[in-house]
Write a protein that binds this DNA or RNA. Structure first.
Length: 104
DNA sequence: CTCTTGACCATGT
DNA sequence: AACATGGCCAAGA
């Protein structure tokens, strides 16, 4: 249980939980999480967009299918997100991550 | 309840 | 490789 008194739906809760389970040094794609939860990628993205709370949700570990960071809407922008990931051991090449290597 | 919108994805041009 | 289109599901107005 990561989220306490936050008013969210069950579907969103599942998404946040799944994101929070991503191991350090790994990343996951919206679509992958979505499939795992039986929903669509848009829903996952939307869920994170509405709750950009980095302290509870490691949204910096969530990338799109290309392995590119989508966080221009998030906290410090792509730069900060990239820095955090590199700090965890994720390697970027040209603003992109090799999902076949770092994909969860 | 209907309509719009979106941190996406796959496919086609 | 970049752009356009359609599909997807859930939330909010």
């Amino acid at each position: 249980m990561i989220l306490k008194n936050m008013m969210i739906t069950d579907n969103f809760y599942k998404i946040y939980s799944e994101v929070a389970k991503i191991p350090k040094g790994k990343v996951a794609a919206y679509g992958d999480i979505a499939k795992r939860l039986g929903t669509s990628a848009r829903v996952v993205g939307n869920a994170l967009h509405k709750n950009p709370d980095q302290m509870l949700i490691p949204c910096h570990r969530v990338l799109n299918r290309k392995g590119e960071v989508a966080g221009n809407f998030a906290f410090g922008g792509g730069k900060e997100q990239r820095r955090l990931l590199e700090d965890e051991g994720v390697i970027f090449q040209k603003n992109k991550v090799d999902l076949s290597s770092f994909g969860w």
